[in-house]
């Protein structure tokens, strides 16, 4: 019952996200959609995925969208673009969207008509039984998800971290530092403490109180990721949210980005080397404490790497202009 309710809410928020005319409202609806879907993931007994979605999908990417929108607004003022009036010809817009709507409805009908026979195949979960019965003795992990992405399918993790690294390189390549300072009268995204607003009085002390707790949570999730829900990706995302929070209050670009990028690449090399060395040096079973040590090391390396990667993306995105 609860599940049905949340699934219906998901449909409604997704529809509102797509149909909303104002972009900022649409982004907020997207965040709500993501939040609701993480509740549904929890109902489907997937706490790891729910945690990743709530930190990465619902929080960090919403901040990225909002920063992009305010950047676009500022650019349109700098470039002196004329304000384009909203199109009033509703009928023309509806006619424009009609073919897409018809095609989508056809695709939906086709998918739903085709689906049930394929679902019958899902009943035979041989692989699932294999993982369920062996993961504790094989890997020494208490969390089957961590056992899979750190041991059975560690290739997935390697290429996932590589994908993140490539996207960091892409963002760095496409943005460069603004040589000419922008005129002071223009609103700079999120600048609160500098241009007359008084928000710093409350937020800055509160943040000083909050930051250590958030960092502690991030490290806890990394260190206990192999026993309880969590892991390197979630912990790293929480750690990088510390930097996001810091930007929202302090507004200083005093972080050493080049160092962070270099460290991220070194950490990626370590993430490749640790499993490779373990495979080549000790081809036989590790003893119990060494298995745990391997899992903790990998979670910690992945966490710090993800934290650096997301932070570099965010800081480049906020402080640098487009190429």
């Amino acid at each position: 019952m609860v599940e049905t309710f949340f699934l219906m809410l998901l449909l409604v928020t997704a529809f509102l996200t797509i149909q909303q005319r104002r972009l900022r409202t649409s982004v907020i609806f997207m965040a709500v959609f993501s939040l609701l879907s993480s509740v549904v993931f929890l109902l489907y007994q997937a706490p790891d995925v729910a945690m990743a979605e709530i930190v990465i999908g619902s929080t960090l990417s919403t901040v990225l969208y909002l920063v992009a929108l305010s950047k676009q607004e500022r650019l349109s003022q700098v470039m002196h673009l004329p304000k384009i009036p909203r199109p009033q010809m509703r009928i023309q817009v509806i006619l424009q969207r009609l073919p897409a709507a018809i095609l989508t409805v056809l695709a939906a009908v086709l998918l739903i008509w085709l689906y049930p026979p394929a679902a019958d195949l899902a009943g035979q979960d041989i692989a699932a039984d294999w993982y369920r019965s062996r993961f504790q003795s094989d890997t020494g992990a208490g969390n089957a998800v961590a056992a899979i992405y750190l041991n059975y399918r560690v290739y997935d993790t390697l290429f996932e971290t590589l994908t993140l690294l490539i996207s960091v390189l892409g963002v760095v390549h496409l943005s460069r530092y603004a040589e000419e300072p922008l005129p002071a009268s223009l609103p700079v995204p999120g600048r609160m403490t500098r241009n007359g607003h008084d928000d710093g009085q409350i937020i800055t002390p509160l943040l000083r109180l909050l930051l250590p707790l958030v960092m502690l949570t991030g490290f806890y999730i990394m260190f206990y990721g192999h026993l309880s829900p969590g892991g390197g990706f979630q912990g790293g995302a929480i750690l990088s949210s510390v930097l996001f929070l810091r930007y929202l209050t302090v507004q200083e670009n005093d972080l050493r980005l080049a160092l962070m990028q270099k460290l991220e690449k070194i950490l990626f090399l370590l993430i490749i080397l640790v499993p490779a060395l373990i495979v080549f040096i000790t081809p036989f079973d590790l003893s119990g404490w060494m298995k745990s040590l391997y899992l903790i090391t990998m979670n910690l390396l992945i966490g710090v790497k993800v934290c650096f990667g997301l932070s570099v993306i965010f800081i480049r995105f906020v402080f640098h202009e487009s190429r």
Partner: peptide, 18 residues
């Protein structure tokens, strides 16, 4: 529950933000 889809979907979320 089957842990394999969950491990894959954590990957999907991180790639999504990239």
């Amino acid at each position: 529950v089957d842990p394999l889809p969950q491990a894959l979907m954590i990957t999907a979320i991180v790639i999504g933000i990239s």
